[in-house]
Amino acid sequence: MCDTCGCNITSGNQHLIKPGGKLSLANNGATSISVLKNLMNENDQVAAHNREHFDKNNILAVNLMSSPGSGKTALLESTIQQIKEQFRIAVIEGDLETENDADRIRKQGVPAIQITTGSACHLDAHMVHDAVHGLSLKELDIVFIENVGNLVCPASFDLGQHLNVTLLSVTEGDDKPAKYPVMFRAADLILLTKTDLLDVLDDFDTSKAEKNLRQLASEAPVIELSSRRGDGVSDWITWLKQQVEAQLSRVKNGESLKPAIQKEGAQLHTETSHSHTALTQNHTQA
């Protein structure tokens, strides 16, 4: 464990475990044992395993997160139509119930695996692992994971993806990043969707949405688009193609990538992330 080298002891917690600190002392004959281990350990190990599968097969894995109904599936439909001649795509769909979204994706002529979570509010690395084994990885370039529509829990679970894309539809309100900081801080790219509706909405200010995002110390690029009308979709496709290129060159160099959020506090502090840092470069936004 990292406890042996001390790399998980940070300025935030070192006072607790120093001699005399409240965690170092034994109490009423019992023994206090310092651990400092990430509580997502098991999920993160499976996520790292998933990432190895993707990397071994030169695949870029992108996790799409948003509220229900902000246009994740519509974005995928329009994306697939534009790039399916150029890239071999598969989609892992997460919903509580129904095969509806997977059916929509299959109609576009690409494989889709539907995960129905029952009442679970997010995908975790185990569910994605099972889905990954239902795909012919050797025949793919991009795997999209469409997470369960939810601005809370999906942000806390590493699935093995390389990048997080968070969608915010203009019908939801420009203060969403301030209300759901954990989710928006996790994004490598923000897509403001349904911009065709901006004409009839006088209460969504795209610059305010971006300002709320910057207040989370996020440098993630923001792209405005309408999947229905096609505006801005080419900017998203350009970003995606750059990411596929970047993934291929990482794989060539024996490197991998975790979403931007992984590089911060949690990664600096714990054992599980430490064991993979050798192969994982920190992501810096262009």
Partner: peptide, 27 residues
């Protein structure tokens, strides 16, 4: 939800505490 510098107000900051979820110790 406001991770900007308290001194100069810049948003280019690095989180150094606040996203932990750790098992710290066991008695």
């Amino acid at each position: 939800n406001k991770l900007i510098c308290g001194q100069c107000g810049d948003y280019h900051t690095q989180l150094i505490s606040g996203d932990e979820m750790l098992l710290a110790s066991v008695e």
